[in-house]
Design a protein around this nucleic acid. Sequence first.
RNA 1: GCGGGGAUAGCCAAGCCAGGUCAAAGGCGCAAGGCUCAGAACCUUGUGGCGUAGGCCUUCGUGGGUUCAAAUCCCACUCCCCGCACCA
Length: 946
Amino acid sequence: MNWREIEEKWQKRWFESKIFESNPDPSRPKFFITVAYPYPNMPQHIGHARTYSLADAYARYKRMRGYNVLFPMGFHYTGTPILAQSKRIQANDKELIEQFKSLGIDEETIKTFVSPLNIARYFHRDLKLGMQEMGYSIDWRREFTTIDPPYSRFIEWQFYKLREKGYITIGSHPVGWCPSCKNPVGQHDTKGDVEPEIGEFTAIKFIFNDVYLPVATLRPETIFGVTNIWINPKVEYLEVLLNNEKMIISEKVFEKLKHQFTNLELIKKIKANDLIGKYAINPINGNKVPILPADFVDPENATGIVMSVPAHAPYDMLAILDLKKEPRGVSSEIISSINPIPVIETPNMPTIPTIEIIEKFGIKNQLDPKAEEATKELYMREFHYGKMLPIAGKYSGMPVSKARDEIKRDLIESNKAFKLYEIINGPVYCRCGSKVIVNVLSNQWFINYGNPEWKRITKEHLNNMNIIPNELKKEFENVIDWLREKACARRAGLGTPLPWDKEWIIESLSDSTIYMAYYTIARIINEEKIDPSLLTPEIFDYIFLGKELPSCIGIKKEILEAMRKEFLYYYPLDSRHSGRDLVPNHLTFFIFNHVAIFPKELWPKQIVVNGSVLMEGKKMSKSLGNIIPLRKAIRDYGADVIRICVLSTSELLQDADFSPSLAENIKSRLKEFYEFALKYANAPPLNRDALDNLDKWILSRTQKLIEQVTNSMEALRVREAIQNILYIFPQEINWYIRRKNNNPQESVMKYIMEILIKLLAPFAPHLCEELWEKYGNKNFVSIEKWPEVDLSLVDIKLEVSEEYLRNVINDTSEIIRVTGIKPSKIYYCIAPKWKWEVYLKILQLIDEGADPKSIVKEIMKDKEMRAKGEEVVKFINSIISSIISMSKDYRKKLLSIGIINEAEILKTDFISHYFNAQIYVGEVFEEVPKKKIEQAIPMRPAIYVV
RNA sequence: GCGGGGAUAGCCAAGCCAGGUCAAAGGCGCAAGGCUCAGAACCUUGUGGCGUAGGCCUUCGUGGGUUCAAAUCCCACUCCCCGCACCA
């Protein structure tokens, strides 16, 4: 078979027949399903295929269930990474160029990437082709990008709505910033793709004559333990005016602090030596502490001045020890006067923990890199388990974690300290080479997800939504709880300018929250080529909110009415799909924004979240170089194979593991399925009047399969569905064929295979279309009716009988195996009728909830049983525990079936062929020991082999 | 820290919410047999331990508990993964 040919053939036919194009049809129920649209800055890889394949399989399933399914797709051009990439290409960045080359992009194309739009367009095309080659049942007429002018009009409308509701706020906000590019820096803008982490320092204003020494710290609670102040003797300091107060900071932080404080001016330079040996006053307790030199003080960090708490900070203790060895001009009086002041008590740690930890880590001096580790460990332990000592005054006894926040707040409120930001995982470098700093942006626009009323209705709606898998509902709830203001616009990148402040571009997580509504009108906008300038907020108010239309609009009324109709037909959204990484942001914003803007009856109904795809157990990443571009994988293995790989290897939330060997396995399994199915393509149709018990049995099992797979699909347990279709049920078919002496009834097989083809069609659509055609059907299996259980073909008694036969065979095999006998004769002594009666009676009693202890008594009420005496009691005792430990359902099933004619089932040539032995079935045989015969119980004959 | 997810046989991975047909689906790997000139594929069987009669013993991260019955429910603990924002 030629996979490529089959795939292309059906993709072409689907396209030509337009079966995946969906238009409003009030006579049919609709199902509207969307997946988070992709960001076109990289080729699509197997990871992307999981979410899309899942959504597509679901869309295909729903279509077969009779829904008018709309599955559209767009492309998210908004954002900065593409811009960053184009800058790197402009700068002739070898690494990125090599990366693109390794992904199979030719040099000429890469040259065009100096323009960000060319990058977006190139990968847009790649993504789209990949989706088409995967056979996704997308209605492409509704395609758009997020920088298309009509879409921008739509986003403007959204933002006007949010502002009207009071959900837009303005304020200041710290961001990682490149001082030479004059731009915010995200992970993709940095060398080595490091995300700059911003930490909030407290700068405590120690008093030094008529100026302040702002000591920057992450641990303001240790202020009570300050013994001295450290400055770096090798660097220049400045006296500055900060918010109209005189302060001393290091020269190197002056420029960057300007990004955080608008009111910062230079007064004069100061030499470190002019400070060393002098005293400053601790603002919290008035203690006089000396200013001393230390090399570990980083002049580029925070203010370039730190306080010394030798009892709790290893660096401080080390610096003091160093100073004792080498006083550097500081008088021995001062040095010897410094004694650590403990402020925190931590279980299992000495009063002055720094001494111990320095020994434990074997740290030599303040420049020893191990000091960093020691600091981290001590900070962690004290933060988690430490309590403040009485020296901390009103904070005495408080856990460190709490005291830190309170002290910080109090210091700031009493103007003894101020906040300042610093990159804490630094140094981080911008791709241009400059060191990333913190900039506090003023006039930053936010969407205020912290609004309590908004939170409340969002949460309320979440509870009405179907979240698959359900475990995530709680996570959504938490996310809604913690979300605060979200900066919603930035200075650079592709996207829609904020309509009332065009300097700002609406960022990508904010312009992607309600666009599912846009799909419903995108077809008309695309087909009618509507002039975007005519798409005013009033027009959208009409389409989406049903408000009255202004008189002069420039668009034909019928067109607008059609849009309104189409929106109302498809909305609300039935299912939203994405990877789990979008739970704490996009998916939650999606609920928030819908709730804010649309009327209640149009709020989304369901969210489906899936895990990611690993490559041979490892995360796919550029640095590992283990990314397989999707289109390459399709060429290597075929679309259906990839679809099944990503959908069948793990349940929804787990990460799926892809590997070439897995793909090969799936490929051969599908090939087998195809070849097996072909055998019955030309068989006659099922004749229900010509069925033997085995035919009826497999047909009954087939009904069970339909039920199971349908249930799995409804709950999106696609792995389970595929396992049943491709692995578990075929074992039943094998058994059937074997039982029929390799001579299955072909019409039965055809019936079964047609069902399997339909069940598999959402997952392997190309293969199934091909088979469906080979089976003589003229229509597409993609729009065939999903199989339904035919109750008239269900026969539980036959299923139990067959199971019984298998159990007997298994038991016999085990006996043969254990004893090592190669039997020529096998005796099956089935239970006599009275045992069956007792058995069913016990089943019934237990089912009715009778006390097991009362069973014997109850049975013995029967005269005939009493007559048998001891034998009955022995029998009851031998079976009672197994009956008690049956599941309720199984008990009920057995009860409903009643006595099974065991002899009839066992009298089959199949067993004698199976064991190549003579088979005897009856209640009693002379050749069988009496003790053995007595072992017979219903559904379990005594087996004797010789 | 806060929040979420997880730990199952050689490996991957179901089962857990609704306790009982659970020595635990399915796949991979491994072994034996069938088919074949041979191989691949396919089919059958086995794959915790013991066992000359369908059984018994031990197992689902660790330790307790509830129950006639626990992989499944409750409590405590250990370890692993992920998110915490301006980044798509």
